[in-house]
Design a binder for these strands. Structure first.
Lengths: 335, 335
DNA sequence: TTGTAGGCGTTATCAT
DNA sequence: ATGATAACGCCTACAA
């Protein structure tokens, strides 16, 4: 069974290969009737254009490259999965590559993708120090870890956190603790700003709302010790609610509270950030601020395919987070 | 800056494009000195062969497709990541696709990969009922969820579980409970067999070793109720150790024990299965049987690139699991 | 609107 | 051992 090519379609349809090609590419100048007939033949023969030949002749490969630091990170794997879906909707496929947070690998990967003639690259830059050398003429969009000088798309961490803290405020909380991320991390600082924003809003209302901040890494264990720190004080000074900068921190903090005999949410409300799958598996289920990963991925793909204008250089596209209500939040007990 | 092609290299080196091509492909019939010189020019010009042109002319695309049910499953994302690394070592790249456990999507994805001229496909079949239509002439290797009639590679669940149970036996445990997976799952049954294997070994030693089995889904919550079921009996009848068929079950079971006031590992040892990252984040860290994901991925890639013979049809390649010792196991307390 | 033909960058075949 | 050249499958001027 010799592979069916564009010529076979043309022959069977009694037209030229050019016409078939034009039908394939939705070129406007093909008669309606003819177009339908050719489509029929294509279907009937099960013809599929050869992507290699296409990308050699034309400019497009219908391939998008995505380079991330670590696929085992749930955030990134969901990002890749969402990108794959979004790309598939446009007839594109995805090549994934992992940089393991090494700038050298990252550069190499980008080179490979360039020579593969991908139509665009979605990049989550490594944390390594590096100067990103932009492949000329190849659209690239930076995601999550924004870089100055590039089109960027990310969650709006700052207002996301504000959203979460305000949720606690609405429930009646005033002494709200905050577990921050590492202070050299850009997203961590954005999240901190969101907390401060929200707390300032309360203080203007003349309520007692001194910030109560513990700095920590994003992981579980750090969240646990930060939680211990925030909760190790007399009951009427202790926060009635804690906002954690990551779900892992939040879960660690739940553990700390549990070990201290503080019931959740009766005596302590907790809100996390990220919306990882694990958040809905804790007992009780964690209330968290969910990052719009699917939206981020879809926007990135849309930008690359020019379905959507790229964000301006200095002004990244920030997508809104949303609260996912679990069972770790309630109104505070009276003092 | 017009892109540098094979012709530019040839011109500068004063040879024909044919010769350059032969150098690129390590064709034996090129003089040593010439080969070196051409290599130099290639380096100097930063020439990179165009993969599209290559795959159009030749038979290979240096592309491998991988189709999995769900990338947010940690097992699969690690699998993909490992495959990417293994492929990169051979100069190959990976196209990922998600089937969402739908046979129709799976078929479609395989079709796309075929027309992309990938050199091989790694497939974790969907659980949907389906007849896999093998793309003729395109190497395909089934991973994890073995399918009759195809070359398959997976972890050796059965002896992996036996390993874990025997570990408990060596510590002195005899009343060892088992949380099984869903009974219509092939891997679940393999794991159950491993448990029975190990328990039969003990009974021959004339010890009390009646099997103590709870059936459950693979998830956290199911593990918790299965744990409750196994532990809801008088102390001298209660198992001193429990082997869970998944880490998620194991973690659920830890929770159940904790809620019942049974200290781990003092009064109860627990062993999980899978080796997901979360396993090392629990308190205490979970002892688990780790699947050799990297080995599986590497073997799959090697088979596709014919670096390694494909496993025979009826006889899948089973790779050994290994114990990852955490802090949830110890010798049992005297009754 | 449709057909014709050249060429994309590479590899393989056939000469030399 | 090396050089010249056709062919891979498709798209797109250009011609009709």
């Amino acid at each position: 069974m010799p592979k069916v090519g564009i010529r076979d379609v043309a022959k069977l349809a009694g037209v030229s290969t050019g016409t078939v090609s034009r039908v394939l590419n939705d070129h406007p100048s093909v008669t309606g009737e003819l177009r339908v007939r050719v489509r029929g033949i294509i279907e009937q023969l099960g013809y599929m254009p050869d992507p290699s030949a296409r990308s050699m002749r034309g400019k497009v490969s219908r391939l998008i490259g995505i380079v991330i630091p670590d696929l085992t990170n749930p955030f990134f794997s969901e990002l890749v999965q969402s990108a794959e879906q979004a790309a598939a909707r446009h007839g594109y496929n995805i090549i994934v590559m992992t940089s393991f947070d090494q700038a050298a690998k990252e550069t190499d990967r980008i080179g490979q993708l360039t020579s593969r003639k991908v139509d665009g690259i979605i990049l989550v830059p490594s944390n390594d120090f590096h100067t990103l050398k932009p492949p000329k003429g190849l659209p690239i969009v930076i995601v999550d870890r924004l870089l100055p000088g590039y089109s960027g798309i990310a969650a709006d961490h700052r207002s996301g956190v504000r959203l979460g803290v305000e949720h606690l405020v609405k429930l009646g909380h005033r002494r709200i603790g905050f577990i921050s991320g590492p202070k050299d991390s850009v997203p961590a600082n954005d999240r901190l700003k969101g907390y401060i924003d929200a707390m300032e809003l309360i203080s203007e209302g003349k309520q007692n709302a001194a910030p109560l901040i513990a700095e920590a890494a994003f992981d579980y264990e750090s969240g646990r010790s930060a939680g211990n720190y925030l909760l190790a004080r007399a009951r009427h000074e202790r926060p009635t609610a804690i906002f954690a900068s990551s779900d892992q921190q939040a879960i660690g903090c739940m553990r700390a509270a549990h070990d201290l005999g503080i019931p959740i949410p009766a005596a302590l409300s907790i809100v996390g950030f990220d919306g990882i799958p694990l958040a809905s598996m804790t007992i009780p289920r964690l209330t968290t601020v969910k990052q719009p990963i699917q939206d981020i991925a879809a926007a990135a793909v849309a930008v690359l395919l020019s379905k959507q204008g790229a964000p301006e250089l200095g002004k990244p596209l920030l997508l809104p987070c949303a609260i996912s209500e679990g069972e770790t939040t309630s109104s505070p007990q009276p003092d």
